[in-house]
C-alpha cells in the first residue's frame, strides 16, 4: 500500500456559528460513519491482535496456545529483527532524502520551461499510479545481471556490470532506485505546486535588488517552501516504511538478509511459516516504532513551523 497524501498543514475549519443549533445531530450523522468504520476495521483488529502477542498459533496446530512473553523475548533476541530495523531506517532515509533532492530539482527545471510543461507533468505522474507488483517485475528485468539493459548500457560504456539484486549493498540500493522511480514524482509534483503558488512580487523585488538566481533560490524560495517540503517528505517516509511489494518480487529479502525490511521480515519470519503469534508480535513492534518516529518527526515539524 502506498500513496500520496496531502500535507498536515491545515487551515482552521470554516464553521458557521449561526447554524449550530440546527446542526445538532447532523454534525454527528455526517462524521460518525467514517469514524466508526475506521474504528471497526482499523483500531479494533489491531487491539484484537494484541492477544496473539502472548499466544502461539502454528502450522499444524488447531487452536491458539498461550506462551506468555516467549514471542517478545524471541523478537528482542533476534539479531535479524534489529538488522531489519536499521536497514529499514537506511532505506527510508535514502529513499525520502534522494526523492526530495531529485524531485525538487526536476520541479525547478519544470518551472523554468513553458513548452511541454503540462504533458510532462502528466507523464511524470505515471509511475505513481502503476501497480508496484508489475513495476517490480519491470525492474527485475532491467536489473537482470546478464540480460538486463542496465548492465548492457554499463558495459557499452566500458564499465563493469553490477550485481544489482545480489550484492549486500547494491540490493538495498536497487530497491531504493525502484522507490525513486515510482515515488519521486510525488515530491516533484507537490513541490511544483508549491513553487507555482509562490508570489511573483517577492522575486521581482529581489531581482531589482540585484540578487543572483542562486541567492533567490537559497534565500527566498527555499525558506518559503520548506514547511511544505518537510511535510511532503514526512508523508513519503511513512509510506516508504511500509515497503513490501518490491522486496517480494525483486529480492525475497536476500541476499542473506540484506533486504529484509521490517514489513517483509514480519511476513517472512512470521506469516509465511504460519507462526501467527510471532507475526502479531513483529507487527506490534512495527506499529510502536512507526508511532515513535512519527511523533519525533511531528515535534520537529511543529518546531519548524513555529520558528
Amino acid at each position: 500500500m502506498s500513496t500520496a497524501q496531502p500535507a498536515l498543514a491545515t487551515p482552521a475549519p470554516r464553521a458557521t456559528a449561526s447554524r449550530r443549533g440546527m446542526d445538532g445531530y447532523a454534525k454527528y450523522i455526517f462524521l460518525l460513519p467514517a469514524m466508526l468504520y475506521l474504528l471497526i476495521l482499523g483500531l479494533f483488529p489491531l487491539l484484537f491482535s494484541l492477544r496473539l502477542v502472548f499466544g502461539a498459533w502454528n502450522a499444524g496446530q488447531k487452536n491458539v496456545t498461550w506462551v506468555g512473553l516467549d514471542n517478545i523475548q524471541r523478537l528482542l533476541a533476534d539479531s535479524r529483527f534489529w538488522g531489519s530495523f536499521w536497514k529499514t531506517l537506511s532505506y527510508v532515509a535514502l529513499a525520502a532524502g534522494l526523492e526530495l533532492i531529485l524531485g525538487f530539482a526536476v520541479a525547478l527545471a519544470l518551472l523554468n520551461v513553458t513548452r511541454g510543461r503540462s504533458w510532462m507533468r502528466v507523464a511524470f505522474a505515471f509511475p505513481m499510479l502503476l501497480p508496484p507488483i508489475a513495476v517490480s517485475f519491470t525492474w527485475k528485468m532491467l536489473f537482470d545481471f546478464n540480460r538486463g539493459p542496465i548492465n548492457y548500457f554499463l558495459e557499452t560504456l566500458g564499465l563493469d556490470r553490477i550485481a544489482w539484486l545480489a550484492g549486500q549493498n547494491s540490493a538495498l540500493l536497487s530497491l531504493v532506485i525502484v522507490d525513486l522511480w515510482q515515488w519521486t514524482p510525488f515530491i516533484l509534483l507537490a513541490s511544483l505546486a508549491a513553487l507555482e503558488s509562490l508570489p511573483v512580487e517577492l522575486y521581482e523585488a529581489a531581482t531589482v535588488d540585484g540578487a543572483s538566481r542562486w541567492n533567490l533560490l537559497w534565500d527566498i524560495t527555499l525558506p518559503l517552501v520548506k514547511p511544505y517540503l518537510v511535510a511532503i517528505v514526512l508523508l513519503r517516509a511513512i509510506d516508504a516504511f511500509k515497503v513490501f511489494d518490491t522486496i517480494y518480487i525483486l529480492t525475497g529479502g536476500g541476499p542473506g538478509t540484506a533486504t529484509e525490511l521490517l514489513t517483509f521480515y514480519a511476513y517472512v519470519a512470521g506469516f509465511r511459516p504460519f507462526n501467527m503469534g510471532f507475526t502479531a508480535t513483529v507487527s506490534w513492534a512495527i506499529v510502536i516504532i512507526m508511532s515513535i518516529i512519527f511523533l519525533l518527526f511531528l515535534r520537529a515539524f511543529r518546531r519548524l513551523e513555529e520558528a
Binding site: Q5, F48, F271, M290
Partner: peptide, 21 residues
Amino acid sequence: FWFISQRMMPPIALVVPYFLL
C-alpha cells in the same frame, strides 16, 4: 489528524487480525 494518522498504520499489523477475524 486522527483520520490521517490511520494512514500511518502499517498494513502488516492488520494482516493477522483480519486473517483470524
